[in-house]
Structures are given as structure tokens and as C-alpha cells.
Design a protein around this nucleic acid. Sequence first.
DNA 1: CAGTATCCTTACAGATACTG
DNA 2: CAGTATCTGTAAGGATACTG
Lengths: 114, 114
Amino acid sequence: MQVTICPERAIMEHVTSKWGVLVLQALFDGASWRFSDLRRELEVVSEKMLTQTLRTLERDGFVHREVHPVIPPHVEYTLTPLGKGAADHLVALFSWIAANQPEVTQAQERYDGS
Amino acid sequence: MQVTICPERAIMEHVTSKWGVLVLQALFDGASWRFSDLRRELEVVSEKMLTQTLRTLERDGFVHREVHPVIPPHVEYTLTPLGKGAADHLVALFSWIAANQPEVTQAQERYDGS
DNA sequence: CAGTATCCTTACAGATACTG
DNA sequence: CAGTATCTGTAAGGATACTG
């Protein structure tokens, strides 16, 4: 995804990307997910973006993709230990945001009113 | 910035946006910054994007904008206590990524090679 | 079911010029 | 110095149709 000044920034962008954040979160508290379930969970994500996001996170070693060779196809996505580490931080951040959301909303109203 | 399913997601997107991450980080370990210095620090950010990012973070109550009415203009940006809280998490995440970057890079090479 | 492959759109981002 | 205002291009993202 776009410019890569340094490897760290690139990884940061994968992890904090719009859908990356949500995928890691879902995998964090859901253990194992199928493609379609994940899609429903995230709401309004297109197939293309979900696939792209999962591939990027799989490539980074954050997500494990388990294919069961049956018909119809059955694929399970889980966090790797590495992905768990990243997700930990993301979930902590999101919890903080949820806890402080009222304060932020107030700040916004103050800003818009002045 | 774009679709807002819920307030939390919107705030998350501000904080984890490409330039939001970098601005919060810089403010975190630099105390106070002038516009131009910040621009130099982040490298290759356009004036427009830096302004836009700072405004969004200011509106959210994360960043304080101090204008000194002199000529030429002098403006200082600092983190608010609220912004400090968000930046804490971001910095923790980035440290984790820096520490685990080698492992991620290895995973990428494995993925690309197979 | 779990994806690819296409096409299409817009909004994000950058460049440039100008101003208080 | 610290921005705004405008213009413009690109690529991120979405909708749809199709496939193993």
C-alpha cells in the first residue's frame, strides 16, 4: 500500500489501515473466522478489500489462512502469535478510544461551535 | 474523513491515519512544534495534508494550537492530556512494530518465495 | 463458499500560486 | 511564517459478474 519510507512505516500502515484494524480486532476476539462471516461482521466491506487486507496481513505473518480442501470450499482465518501481539496493541488503543469517546465528541462540539 | 459507522471508528481513523500517526508521534516526543519544523520532521508531507491532519486532531481535542500574534506568525502545536493518552498507545504499537520488524520481513520473504 | 477479474468512480493526495 | 485556495491526476475503493 503506497509509499514506503521505511519497513516500519509500511507495516504500521498495514496494521492501522481502515480494514486492517477491523480484521485484526475481529480475529482477536473471535478465534477463527470464515471469509463470509468476517465480511458480515465488518459490515459493508467489499470482497475485494477484505481479500486484499487478509492477503497483506497473511504476508506479514499476522494472519494464518487454513484451507480445507472440500467442496464447497472452507477457509478459516486465525491470528498467528505475531498477529496476536499486534492486535493486543490495537485493541488497547480501541478500548481507550471507546472510553474517551464522549470527551472527544465534546471537544468536537466545542470546536465546531466556536 | 469518509464513512462513519460509529463515532469510535471515526476517531480511530483520525488517530491511525497515515499522517495522524506521525503527527501524534512527533508531538509525543518533541513537546512543542512549529508548523514548518513539523513538516520537515515528517518528510514529504504536503502543506495541505499537514494542515488537514492538524485541524482534525485539534478538533478531536488531541492537539492544542497556540497562536502568537506576531509578525511573522508563530504557531506552536502541542499534545493535550487527551492527545497524550492516544499517543501513548500509538507509540507503544510503533515500538512493538519496530521490535518485530525483522520477523515480519522474514514472513514476507517466506510468503513471496512460496 | 471463497474467492478472482473487470470496470468505474470519487475523493484523497500532491503541486502550485497566492495572502494576512 | 503559516497557512488558504484551486486545480488536477492517480489509485484506492466499490459494484458487478464470473469461476474452481
